[in-house]
């Protein structure tokens, strides 16, 4: 039962991440939603798998996947956003500040 609740929370957060992907205005803001919500959503699902299987090989693998997912998601988000900026994608009209412009030149 606990496993079911944790997995449901994970799926819900994944849903929020996807809604953010659709609604937010530009690449940078969309990546924020995609990184945070989807990472924690997947971690919740893996935690649910761990609770369901207990300390067996499948459970331990799910537990180990959590830190790997954290590191790969954050590094991938960084690489994507940096590449996007260098490629020349503009930030949306709502943006109020851009300190990175001087550093790129």
């Amino acid at each position: 039962m606990a496993a079911l609740i944790v997995i449901s929370i994970g799926v819900l957060f994944n849903l929020f991440g996807c809604i953010g992907l659709l609604r937010l205005p530009d690449v940078y803001n969309r990546l924020q939603a995609a990184t945070k919500c989807v990472t924690l959503g997947c971690c919740s699902i893996l935690l649910g798998v761990l609770i369901h299987f207990g300390i067996t090989d499948a459970g331990i693998k799910a537990l180990i996947a959590i830190p790997l997912l954290f590191f790969s998601a954050t590094v991938a988000a960084h690489a994507l956003v940096r590449g996007t900026y260098h490629f020349g994608v503009k930030m949306s009209d709502k943006s109020v500040k851009d300190d990175y412009k001087e550093a790129v030149k």
Binding site: P25, N29, S92, V96, D98, A103
Partner: peptide
Amino acid sequence: PIKPGIVK
């Protein structure tokens, strides 16, 4: 409610 930007 968003007000995005890049800060250093």
